[in-house]
Design a protein around this nucleic acid. Structure first.
Length: 359
DNA sequence: AATTCGGGGAC
DNA sequence: GTCCCAGAATT
C-alpha cells in the first residue's frame, strides 16, 4: 500500500537532509561518541522529558556509569539515586535490568542490532528501538516520538489524538514509508530537531521550515489543530500523611517502596491516607510508637492523573522493634538527600531541615 | 484499548 | 492554572 506519494517522499527526505546540514543539532552530549550505550541512556531519559532537563542528568549519569558493565554492577539504590528527580522511575529500573541482562547473556557490551531484539528488552519500545538503530548504528529504522508525531501530523494533515490506536497506526505507516535508505542517522536527528525547534506546539516558525512547501496544515493555516489533543478529564485529589519519624539523634526513618506503582523503588517517609489515625496506623502496621506529633505545612504535588496533597507530620519515635525489614532505614537528612528520593520528598526533607535549624 | 507511570518548562 | 515533552508496560 502506498502511504506517501513518491514525489512528495523524495522532496521530504531531501529537504530534511539539506536543512540538517546547516541547522541541525550536532553537539548534544549524546551525539559526541554516539555508541549504542550512550544513545540508549539518552533515549530513555528523553522519554517524556525535555532535552534541557535531561542534559545535567545525562552528564552525571555517564560520569557515574561510563559503560554498560558499570551500570550492570551498580546496586538498585545507586541507579535510583542517579535518577532522583527525573520522574518515571520505572525507566531507571528497566535500564538497570536491561544492562544486567545484556552483560550476562553477551558477556560484553555489544548491543543487539535488530528491531526485534531491541524491543524485547525492558524499557525499549518500538520508537526507542528505532532511535538506537538509526542514531547509533545508522541503520534504516523509523521513530515516532512526540516531535515526529507533530511534524508528520501537520505535514500530512493527520487528524485525531495519537493516543488512539487508529491515529497512531496511521502515523507509524507514514514515518515508516518516509524513512530513507541512506543517511538515516542525520534524517532521524533532523526530524526531531525540526519538531523541537521549528514545528513547536505553539508559535511555530514555519517560515524557517524546510517542509513549508509540502506541509498541508500550513497551507490550511491550521497547524495548531495537529496533532489532536488528548481528551481531558478532571483529576482527583488524594490527601496523605507523610510521617517524618525522627530518632533522638536527629535521624529520619524512611521506607523503600515496592518496585511498581507511584515512586517505585524510591525511599519515602511512611505514608497513609488521611482517613487513618496516624498513631494507630504506625502502631498497627509498623509497631512503632511515636510522640510529639507536629503537623508541618502541607503542599500539593500534581501527577498526570491525580493531585497529591501531602501533609507532613513530624514525630519522635519512642519505641520500635529493631529493624528487621530491609526496606526500612534510618539516615541523616543530608544523607537522605543523596539517595533515590522523589522530588516531593526532597522538598519535605529540605523544609524539615530548615525547620530544625531554626530551633 | 485504556490506564498508569513524574517532573519540569513554557505560557 | 494548562499543556506538553526523544513512550513503554500493564491491565
Amino acid at each position: 500500500m502506498k502511504v506517501v506519494n513518491e514525489v512528495i517522499r523524495a522532496e521530504f527526505i531531501s529537504s530534511v537532509l539539506l536543512w540538517f546540514k546547516e541547522y541541525g543539532r550536532k553537539n548534544l552530549p549524546w551525539q559526541k561518541d554516539p555508541t549504542a550505550y550512550r544513545v540508549w541512556i539518552s533515549e530513555i531519559m528523553l522519554q517524556q522529558t525535555q532535552v534541557k532537563t535531561v542534559i545535567p542528568y545525562y552528564e552525571k549519569f555517564m560520569k557515574c556509569f561510563p559503560n554498560i558493565e558499570d551500570l550492570a554492577k551498580a546496586s538498585n539504590d545507586q541507579v535510583m539515586a542517579q535518577w532522583s528527580g527525573l520522574g518515571y522511575y520505572s525507566r531507571a529500573r528497566n535500564l538497570h535490568k536491561t544492562a544486567i541482562e545484556l552483560c550476562k547473556n553477551r558477556g560484553q557490551s555489544e548491543f543487539p542490532d535488530t528491531i526485534e531484539e531491541l524491543q524485547s528488552l525492558a524499557g525499549i519500545g518500538r520508537s526507542t528501538a528505532g532511535a538506537i538503530l538509526a542514531l547509533a548504528m545508522n541503520k534504516k529504522a523509523s521513530i515516532l516520538d512526540g516531535n515526529v508525531k507533530r511534524v508528520l501530523a501537520r505535514c500530512f494533515a493527520i487528524s485525531g489524538w495519537p493516543g488512539k490506536a487508529d491515529v497512531a497506526k496511521k502515523l507509524w505507516q507514514v514515518t515508516e514509508s518516509l524513512t530513507p535508505e541512506n543517511d538515516v542517522k542525520a534524517y532521524t536527528q533532523a526530524l526531531m530537531d525540526i519538531g523541537a525547534t521549528i514545528c513547536t506546539p505553539r508559535n511555530m516558525t514555519c517560515e524557517d521550515c524546510p517542509l513549508s512547501n509540502i506541509c498541508i496544515a500550513l497551507k490550511q493555516d491550521n497547524q495548531v489543530l495537529y496533532p489532536g489533543k488528548k481528551p481531558k478529564k478532571k483529576i482527583p485529589v488524594r490527601s496523605q500523611y507523610f510521617c517524618l519519624l525522627m530518632s533522638k539523634n536527629g535521624e529520619l526513618l524512611m521506607e523503600k517502596r515496592p518496585p511498581s506503582g507511584i515512586w517505585g523503588g524510591l525511599w519515602t517517609p511512611i505514608s497513609c491516607d488521611l482517613e487513618f489515625n496516624l498513631g494507630e496506623y504506625l502502631e498497627n502496621t509498623y509497631s512503632i510508637e511515636a510522640s510529639n506529633q507536629q503537623r508541618l505545612e502541607e503542599f500539593r504535588h500534581t501527577f498526570s492523573h491525580f493531585h497529591l496533597q501531602l501533609v507532613p507530620v513530624k514525630a519522635d519515635v519512642t519505641k520500635m522493634l529493631s529493624i528487621a525489614e530491609d526496606n526500612l532505614r534510618w539516615n541523616s537528612l543530608d544523607n537522605w538527600l543523596k539517595e533515590g528520593i522523589p522530588a516531593a520528598v526532597r522538598v519535605m526533607i529540605e523544609d524539615l531541615s530548615a525547620n530544625l535549624e531554626k530551633d
